[in-house]
Amino acid sequence: MRKDSRLSRALHVLVHLNNANKPVTSEGIAKMLSTNPVVVRRLLAALRNHGYVQSTKGHNGGWELTKPLDHLTLLDIHKALGESSIFTVGLTDEHSNCAIEISVNNALKDVMNEAEALILTRFGSISLGELGKVN
């Protein structure tokens, strides 16, 4: 199963945008992330829809922050990207009438929900400004 790295990539890009003196093109960001500019535009469009970045067209155009990193949290970015599940572990639903499957799913669901709640709480307490402080 493939990992969802959008949050990590978005955080990486936001810190770089913060450190840039000028707008950064999708192509420049794509090169940094070893991906396609279309992937970058899709990722940053979600952040633009929440007012965290903006883009300008034309010569000297590109992406830039609209808010200081200290005003954004990991939770803000997670939500902006669509609040996908923290875990790639899934519950099975192939035998929904099986008492064992129901029991297993209930046990897994409770543990995963508790762990996810703790992670999201922690995400809300970490500002992106903290990420920009490279040691």
Rank of each mutant, 00 (worst) to 15 (best):
M1Q: 13
K3M: 00
K3P: 03
D4S: 11
D4A: 09
S5K: 15
R6F: 02
S8F: 13
R9C: 01
A10D: 01
A10L: 03
L11P: 02
L11C: 12
V13Q: 04
V13D: 05
V15K: 06
H16Y: 13
N18F: 10
K22D: 03
K22R: 14
V24T: 09
T25I: 05
T25A: 11
E27C: 06
A30I: 04
M32Y: 10
P37W: 09
V38R: 15
V38L: 13
V39F: 12
R41N: 14
R41G: 08
R42C: 00
L43W: 02
A45M: 10
A45I: 06
L47Q: 00
R48H: 07
H50E: 13
G51C: 12
G51D: 08
G51H: 10
V53L: 04
V53Y: 05
V53M: 05
G58N: 07
N60T: 02
G62C: 05
G62L: 03
G62A: 05
E64D: 08
E64L: 15
E64K: 14
L65T: 08
T66M: 09
P68K: 13
P68C: 10
L69A: 03
H71D: 15
H71I: 00
L74R: 11
D76G: 01
I77K: 04
H78V: 02
K79M: 04
L81F: 05
L81S: 05
L81V: 06
G82Q: 08
G82M: 09
E83C: 08
I86Q: 11
I86S: 05
I86P: 01
F87M: 03
L91C: 06
E94K: 14
E94I: 12
H95M: 13
S96A: 14
A99I: 13
E101L: 12
S103M: 15
S103H: 12
S103C: 11
S103T: 15
S103W: 07
S103R: 13
V104A: 10
V104I: 14
N105P: 02
N105L: 05
N106Y: 02
A107I: 10
A107Q: 10
L108C: 09
L108M: 12
K109C: 01
K109T: 04
K109W: 01
V111W: 09
N113L: 10
A115V: 14
A117I: 04
A117F: 01
L118V: 06
L118Y: 11
L120N: 07
T121F: 05
R122W: 08
R122K: 14
F123N: 01
G124A: 08
G124S: 11
S125P: 06
I126T: 11
S127E: 09
S127Q: 11
L128A: 04
L128E: 08
G129T: 06
K133T: 11
V134W: 11
N135T: 07
